[in-house]
Design a protein around this nucleic acid. Structure first.
Length: 588
RNA sequence: GCGCCCGUAGCUCAAUUGGAUAGAGCACCAGACUACGAAUCUGGGGGUUGGAAGUUCGAGUCUUUCCGGGCGCGCCA
């Protein structure tokens, strides 16, 4: 359609520059009164043509009416041209959907470019809780969405198994091990021996301690259940514990329907010397120097003292200050490891990297983008970051306090048990990811219109219900998608029917724009709107029996409507698949 | 103090990335159950898009500046 508009525009404005032609948009009209599509062609070309937009719109409209698909074209507003398509070309969407099935809406926009989507990446120090959930769902849906838009997607999980947190975890697991072998030490006595103090006191490490005892007996402890030299046990306990935590995280993710393609270990990168290599590369580019950072303005920490560190010239890439890669003792910072990790992704062929982070990492965005730019050089690698704001869990109108001590720590597994996986996934996608969100435990299980999960599922169940009823009358062969795709559709004329078809036709465009904007929530909103169109039509049938889908005495009309219903179900499934939600056949 | 994100109807949120008269749900008001399942639907009222200025054919969207909220701020990951 856009090509037709540009062609017509060239007739009206013969010497149209290409860059102006590129700005011509043809988009679905927002309001039914504006027809099916609208174009801004007259307005964008007004300047070069040196004519008022309204005049160009007039001429353009006249030129467009000759086209095959256009029924009416009329200039409107400040210079739009509204296009009313022939109902035939609108209806042609239905057989296209029926033939392509859930592949309808799949786009080539990504051109097979390799995208790495990294999400969750919860530290392997305990079970997943609600705080991790949003990033997991948003990342997973975004990965699906990008795949549907024609990108070659890798889903990745980065295991932060190298730093102080994991060291603390190893000590905590060792404490549980000592308890399992029968230690004389009290928890406080043990804690006093742990560098940095005993963290991670949750019960979830008890089974890990017992498993360690089952595997090693008392060989890891000192005489009589005391603390042995860490050199003897530390590495082994740490990797054992991380493996146990990752197993539990994978199980939680699987319950949520998330299965990363690749798990990358920070420790493995560090042991392979990747951070040092990356620092050398940056050094060679003149982007590294030894220096002393200024204290943060206005808020100097009490213990501030100038220290010389190895710094990366992030300011050359738009960051506010240069960032440390090595601590003053010479060891690498987390940032250095993270650069090495992103360099590794580029090595593996990622052209676009999308990281899904929690909002508390917002201050980290510009330095990571700067680093990727520096490391990529002239390779076509780019980093996008999707920040997920905090989720407040509400019950009975009150926020649920997240406290391990009070026992109100909500694990992901508990949440899924309570409301179900599909409700969790869909609800997490009903907000823009960078907006804060309340997750209302009472609302997501409510079976009313205000619960979009229910509303969309109900639309699909209704479609299936109609098709089941039709099968009894007409048999399965007549209702095969390919058979329905052959049916004449002229009888679909009601505004509500055409509105539904118009919505179905906009699915591919929705996929594409949501993918390019990296905003999977738009899919959830599309599905909600589509469900609304369908429910509306259904309810019109209550008052006007001629609008019901099944018309006993009119086979042709019935078949046309069944084609529409089947196409609606297909697009609903297609959209739900992007969100990772399983469509239901009936509501109970 | 500095940086990033956010501010849209009484409430929770959209707005095809700069397009037309800013849209949905809840709540409120008035209606509709002899059914392909009313677990729903139809209609209505409700707005200076936090304030001000600027950019242009056109601003919720971009720029500047205030106000208000969240997050972060050199050897934590």
């Amino acid at each position: 359609m856009r090509a037709a508009v540009v062609t017509a525009l060239r007739q009206v404005v013969p010497d149209l520059p290409d860059d102006v032609a590129d700005r011509v948009e043809v988009s679905p009209a927002r309001e039914a009164a504006h027809g099916d599509m609208a174009t801004n062609a007259a307005m964008v070309s007004a300047k070069t043509a040196r004519q008022p937009p309204a005049r160009i719109a007039q001429a353009l409209a006249a030129a467009l009416v000759d086209g095959a698909d256009v029924l009416r074209a009329e200039p409107a507003g400040p210079g739009f041209v509204n296009l009313h398509l022939r109902p035939d070309s609108l209806r042609a969407t239905l057989p296209a959907i029926l033939r392509e099935g859930e592949a309808f809406g799949t786009s080539g926009a990504g051109q097979g470019r390799r995208v790495n989507v990294e999400y969750v990446s919860a530290n392997p120090t305990g079970p997943m809780h609600i705080g991790h959930c949003r990033g997991a769902v948003v990342g997973d849906a975004l990965a699906n969405l990008l795949a549907k838009a024609g990108f070659a997607v890798t889903k990745e999980y980065y295991i932060n198994d190298a730093g102080a947190q994991v060291a603390a975890l190893a000590w905590a697991a060792y404490w549980r091990y000592l308890q399992a072998v029968g230690t004389p030490l009290s928890e406080d006595e043990f804690a006093a021996m742990v560098p940095g103090g005993l963290q991670y006191r949750g019960d979830y490490l008890i089974p890990v301690g017992e498993a360690l005892r089952a595997e090693h007996g008392d060989a890891l402890s000192g005489p009589g259940g005391t603390v042995a030299d860490p050199a003897l046990w530390f590495d082994g306990v740490r990797s054992f514990t991380v493996a146990a935590m990752m197993a539990s995280i994978r199980a939680d993710l699987a319950q949520l329907g998330v299965q990363p393609d690749v798990f990358t270990s920070e420790r493995a990168l560090v042991e392979a010397g990747a951070p040092d290599r990356v620092i050398e590369q940056l050094q060679a580019k003149g982007l590294i120097y030894e220096g002393i950072l200024e204290p943060p303005k206005g808020k100097t920490p009490d213990d501030w003292e100038p220290r010389e560190q190895t710094l990366f010239r992030a300011t050359q890439f738009g960051d506010d200050v240069d960032r440390p890669l090595r601590k003053s003792d010479g060891s690498n910072t987390y940032f250095a490891n993270d650069i090495a990790y992103h360099a590794d992704k580029i090595e593996r062929g990622a052209e676009l990297m999308v990281d899904v982070w929690g909002a508390d990492h917002g201050g980290y965005v510009s330095r990571m983008k700067a680093a990727v730019q520096a490391v990529a050089g002239d390779r076509p690698a780019r980093l996008e970051i999707v920040l997920c704001q905090i989720v407040r869990v509400m019950r009975g109108g009150e926020p649920v306090r997240m406290s391990k001590r009070a026992g109100t720590y909500v694990t992901l597994a508990d949440l899924i048990d309570e409301v179900g996986r599909d409700a969790v996934r869909f609800t997490m996608l009903t907000r823009k990811s960078d907006a804060q969100m309340d997750f209302d435990l009472d609302a997501v299980v409510a079976q009313t219109r205000e619960n979009p999960v229910f509303y969309v599922q109900y639309a699909h169940a209704r479609c299936r219900s109609v098709l089941r009823a039709a099968t009894e009358s007409y048999g399965t062969a007549a209702l095969d998608s390919m058979a329905l795709a052959q049916m004449p559709l002229d009888s679909l004329q009601d505004d509500a029917e055409l509105a539904l078809i118009r919505r179905l036709a906009s699915w591919p465009r929705t996929v594409e724009s949501a993918a390019l904007a990296q905003e999977p929530h738009r899919i959830a909103f599309f599905l909600y709107d589509l469900a609304g169109d369908f429910h509306m039509l259904w309810n019109r049938g209550r008052d006007e029996s001629t609008l019901r889908f099944l018309q006993a005495d009119r086979l042709a009309e019935t078949m046309a409507r069944l084609a529409m219903v089947a196409a609606t179900a297909t697009v609903l499934r297609s959209g739900l698949a992007v969100l990772g939600v399983v469509p239901v056949e009936e509501m109970r």
